[in-house]
Every structure is written in structure tokens, then in C-alpha cells.
């Protein structure tokens, strides 16, 4: 991101000034959509494993969410949002993310390390520098599902490469490339 200018980057976390300032300071263009807010708006706050199986609501969600040109983005910041999407909607969302990335584009996602937790801390992720990320709590949420390393590999099996990094706060950072 620091080596070139004019990239188009999609941020799917909570909208915040820190990310906007950092990305704009590098000369990139930021697109934003709060995926978790979109999930809450359409499916409500019920059990995601039940509400997201409703086919009409799932169709409505996909028709209103991430409506961009295929191959538009150089990078997508997914953060921890995939925890709150249940299958089969999760597979449709992952396929949409793949289609929105340019060839050799990157996607950053974070996953909780404990795959058995019933409630997880939801965060607002704020980029404060080239090597630093601040995590601000958005409260505790019930995840639609949690992932093992094998589960993450299967989720992104259509991408060209996956790299895992262990971060603080029991999170795994995953960088995938199309």
C-alpha cells in the first residue's frame, strides 16, 4: 500500500476517521461499507444461524450489499466481519469478495483464535500507522460461526495464496491474495 498511489480500497468494518486518514494520506481512494451494520439492518439481532437462512432476506442482503464493479478493488479490509455471516450466505459473501478483487489484489481478515467461544468481542479496527492497529470494542456478539485454521483454508480455497499471522488479543490475522 505504501509503495504505490491511487489504489482503490474497500473497508468493510466500522467507519472511522483513523482508517480514512491513513489511507488518504497514502494517496489511495477509500470505499466503505459497514458489513455488520448491514447484517443487523436486514436480519435483525436474532440468532444468525437461523435468521440468515431465510432465503428472501439473504437475497435482499446480497442485492443491497457490496454493489461494486467486479475487479474494482486492489485491497479489501474484511476485519472480523466473516464471523457474523452464517452458511450458505457466507459462501455467497466470500464469492462476492473474490469477484470484487482485482487479479493479485489482497484481502485482510481477522479470526478469533478460540473456535468454541459462544460470545466473542467485536471490534472496530483502526489503522494508526504502518505497523500498528488499534482495536476498539463494539461490544460482545454471538458469532454465526468460528473457524479453525482448516476451516479458514477451505473458506478461501479459491484464492491464490493464504498467509496466517498470530496477533494479540487471541486473533489470527489472515492475508489472502487473489
Amino acid at each position: 500500500m505504501r509503495d504505490c498511489q491511487g489504489l482503490e480500497i474497500l473497508d468493510l468494518g466500522e467507519f472511522n476517521q483513523a482508517n480514512r486518514d491513513y489511507i488518504a494520506s497514502l494517496g489511495h481512494r477509500l470505499f466503505h461499507e459497514d458489513l455488520v451494520a448491514g447484517i443487523d439492518q436486514i436480519f435483525g439481532s436474532g440468532d444468525p444461524a437461523t435468521t440468515q437462512r431465510h432465503p428472501e432476506l439473504a437475497h435482499e442482503f446480497l442485492s443491497q450489499t457490496m454493489q461494486f464493479e467486479p475487479g474494482q478493488f486492489d485491497a479489501i479490509l474484511v476485519w472480523d466481519t466473516l464471523h457474523y455471516t452464517a452458511r450458505p450466505l457466507l459462501d455467497a459473501v466470500t464469492a462476492r469478495l473474490l469477484s470484487l478483487l482485482r487479479s493479485r489484489g489482497h484481502m485482510l481478515a481477522l479470526f478469533h483464535a478460540d473456535p468454541r467461544a459462544e460470545q466473542v468481542q467485536s471490534y472496530s479496527f483502526r489503522i494508526t500507522g504502518p505497523d500498528s492497529l488499534e482495536l476498539h470494542s463494539r461490544g460482545v456478539r454471538r458469532p454465526a460461526q468460528l473457524f479453525t485454521n482448516r476451516g479458514i483454508e477451505k473458506l478461501f480455497d479459491r484464492f491464490a495464496s493464504i498467509k496466517f499471522y498470530l496477533t494479540r488479543d487471541s486473533l489470527r490475522e489472515v492475508l489472502v491474495r487473489k
Binding site: N16, R20, R29, F31, E33, D34, A37, S124, H136
Partner: peptide
């Protein structure tokens, strides 16, 4: 914080 935005920033 707490504002909702969907779209692009140029």
C-alpha cells in the same frame, strides 16, 4: 465515532 457511512471518499 458512531456515524454510518456507505460509499466512497475522494
Amino acid at each position: 465515532d458512531g456515524a454510518y457511512f456507505k460509499g466512497s471518499i475522494d
